[in-house]
Amino acid sequence: MRLDDKTVVLTGATSGIGEAAARLLAPSVRTLVIQGPEPASDVAPLIKELGGETDVHYVRADFTSFAQVRRAGTEIRAAVPAIDVLVNNAGVPGAGRRRVTTDGNERTLQVNYLALTLLTQRLLPAIHRGGRIVNVSSTTHRMTGLALDDLNLTDGYDAVRAYAQSKLAILSYSLRLAGELAGRGVDVVTISPGVISTGLLHAMFGGGGVRVEHGGRRVIEAITAEVPTGTYIDDGEIVAPSDEARDPSVAAALAARTTSLIRH
């Protein structure tokens, strides 16, 4: 996919991998919509840097609130009626102690996964044939299974488990979505950008990782790569996700539970 005439929506774009991807995308695309939780005044310097010939829009939304996710979807649709690429990158680390959103969900699950599905649903009508959805997962999805009877981890919570489960949910959802959208000509690609030196990584694992620009480049590669829908790319290599991520029965059960949690 060429980027020069495209409209791209990028969540989690005000820090870490998302900000790095935004800086790489801005000189190449026609329109860039970025999302973050910060007030617009805090993001103004970044928007100024990203501007120039590119039309840049900022949408503020805290993904711990479904109301704000829905509002973000409405604002994005108003700003850009047609979308070529949606990159769902927003994410938080698992907290040291279990935290619950005002919507009643474990925070990591809601921000990383449930909000992603809700925003994607709201924006799907604007993504036209030939478009692509890129969902950012993680190789940590292999570290756990989905607690389908207790996705909110009311029993046995720990930070890494919460994060890994949210990333496994993203992969399972993405593969199911790829099948659903195949007839519409909209691709779904999921990536693990690698072990990147971000606040998220350091919050859970203490340090390490390569520069955020590496993660930003992996996002761009996922947008432009000539790969089939449903592809999972782990740090530049096409690989098979875990068995559970590829299990259609698990995906169906997850979809039903997801709908229940968002409507709750």
Rank of each mutant, 00 (worst) to 15 (best):
M1P: 10
R2I: 13
L3I: 14
K6R: 14
T11M: 10
G12S: 07
A13M: 06
G16T: 04
A21T: 03
P27W: 11
V29L: 05
R30K: 14
E38V: 14
A40E: 13
K48Q: 15
K48F: 15
E49A: 08
H57S: 15
Y58H: 04
T64L: 08
F66P: 00
R70Y: 10
A72Y: 01
E75F: 13
N88P: 15
A90Q: 04
A90L: 13
R97V: 14
T101P: 06
D103H: 11
N105W: 04
T108L: 04
L116S: 12
L119F: 04
T120I: 07
T120L: 09
Q121L: 15
Q121V: 11
P125V: 11
A126E: 12
S138G: 08
A147K: 12
T154V: 08
T154K: 14
Y157I: 06
D158S: 12
A162C: 14
S166E: 03
S166G: 13
S166I: 05
S172Q: 05
A178S: 14
G179E: 14
L181G: 05
G183Q: 09
S192L: 13
P193A: 09
S197E: 15
S197V: 08
S197P: 09
A203R: 06
G208N: 10
R211V: 11
I220W: 00
I220V: 10
A222I: 07
I223N: 00
I223P: 01
T224E: 14
T224I: 14
V227S: 01
D235V: 05
E237T: 15
R257A: 14
R257E: 12
T259R: 14
S260K: 07
I262D: 00
H264F: 11
